[in-house]
Design a protein around this nucleic acid. Sequence first.
DNA 1: TTGTAAGCGTTATCAG
DNA 2: CTGATAACGCTTACAA
Lengths: 339, 339
Amino acid sequence: MRLTIKEIAKRANVSITTVSRVLNQNKEGVGKETRKRVEQVIKESKYRPNAIARSMITKNTKTIGLVIPDIRNPFFSDLARAIEDKANKMQYSVLLCNVDNQLEVIEKYLWLLIEKSVDGIIFSSSDSNLNDGVQKLLKKNNIPVMFIDRGDNENIFNGVFIDNTEAGFLATTHLINLNHEKTGCITGPKSIWNSNQRLRGYYLAHEQVGLKVDRNMVKEGFYTMKGGYDAAKLLLRENKNITSIFALNDLMAFGVYQAAREQNILIPDDLSVVGFDNLSYNQILTPRLTTIEQPIKQIGGVAVEYLVKQIEQELIIEDSIYLETKLIVRDSTRAVSKD
Amino acid sequence: MRLTIKEIAKRANVSITTVSRVLNQNKEGVGKETRKRVEQVIKESKYRPNAIARSMITKNTKTIGLVIPDIRNPFFSDLARAIEDKANKMQYSVLLCNVDNQLEVIEKYLWLLIEKSVDGIIFSSSDSNLNDGVQKLLKKNNIPVMFIDRGDNENIFNGVFIDNTEAGFLATTHLINLNHEKTGCITGPKSIWNSNQRLRGYYLAHEQVGLKVDRNMVKEGFYTMKGGYDAAKLLLRENKNITSIFALNDLMAFGVYQAAREQNILIPDDLSVVGFDNLSYNQILTPRLTTIEQPIKQIGGVAVEYLVKQIEQELIIEDSIYLETKLIVRDSTRAVSKD
DNA sequence: TTGTAAGCGTTATCAG
DNA sequence: CTGATAACGCTTACAA
């Protein structure tokens, strides 16, 4: 059986209270000699306090739930890593939940997280609205939640975001400034809010300079490589005069590269491409991809930080946090000569 | 405050024991009427039992720790996903631990997992030997451990593996059969056992046909894209007559593609490339990469399955499990004409 | 079928 | 400075 505080107390010839004090308070409450003896016994016995029992009293588990669509998506693995690092630094552990954007799975997991008494939840899912029941449950159980990347429409919970519209505008304007008048756009799933925002930026950028966007120029690519590939093929087939493509995430931009290569379309000579996310693994692409950088590490870090603030200071974060994006111009975009 | 079983008992006008019975046993022990009433109250109150309190009694947490180098490595995110899926199906949650192959971090995390009383651990790290103290601790606390991908030299714990030597042999033989007599090899870190095994397969394949391997033909690529890129450049510079490269994981093969493209070396015309892992995201590569398929999903699934077996049946798995690999021939390898 | 009570391993309260 | 003792919210004998 596992060692308990009781056994340590016995071995050190003190009360369990004293052992507990040694375990928890660093300075006061225990005589120097006693402390030394207890510490010695703890070390010798390789005793570790039972966090479960501790949680019963303290009402915290030092654990946060991370709810994301799929850890295999490199955007989310980058994010998960950032979150885990920061959480770890702040003495929290991370429970991983892949929910595939499925409402039932999300709901099931949230119930589980409640049962397991996580101290807080970091949440990112396409479904912009949490199931109503779960929402109330989270509120009722007073579990702090931070959204990242993808928000809830009703702003019941706060989060860490970027200005997707602005970023979409930025990327599109970059292409327009390069004289591209026929820019296709490959979007994420229609249900995902941030994709719609980025698309909105794309439209706004065109509007601002009086450019009209053809209906055929916008295709849904589902935020996947394959989706981007398929959408690019459609785009290239239906629009002979297309000169550039704005993919609303890097994954889909990869798909565009693939489609272009298959059709012997040269990037950037024949086609300029802009992505979104600046995933670490897009280094592999030749030519290097021009893209919007999301401060993923920072997003994760800030999310944890504010979540812990809410947890420990029982503070309510009034507003969502918005972090800056940046256009990173590399080699996949080039100016076209004006007609 | 959060609802407790006591409150539910009060509301349903029964004892907490009865509520507990309704919560846990599905068929017996409670009268039909009573059960119905209690279930009704539970539902209305949106009551969820406190898993922490339950764990105190039952001595299990329905949680497993997943210790891996870095979730951003697509091999490990594929694996993590597989593990999480299977664990979830078996009613377990997954605590994520990125340890970057650093011994202190590993040790710190294992202590944490012990404190948190995880029911079992799935472990993958380059450092082939666990710290001795931790090893004993795991044994002493009787925590089941399954290794995956990377084992411990001393076979103190079992795991799910592939035959890396055989797979390395297979891949190399494929190239040799294609008349490649000058095949470079890009390895993982020297400290990683599975890389050494794959390299051994590479040597064996050459030996078998009486081919000598030049010292310059083997470079360390550290299992990273950048490492593969650097190693490929070295390989190409130092060996003018090289006709193929075997990268000991796909990530490094990506780096080889990049280096080749930069030097206008055509794959497979000028250079054949074989990878290892068959990561889902290597679809992006043109030409499609010939590689060794690791049954990642199965590895994760089996690891969880056997871990849970150990946990629930308190069964000791006698031997490690070895799963089959497969050579997937695609477009990155081509025969060279014999001199 | 139902309920009483002990106990899981801690922390917190209060007394000595 | 130290120690008894009561909680925490459940499950599980054991009793009725």
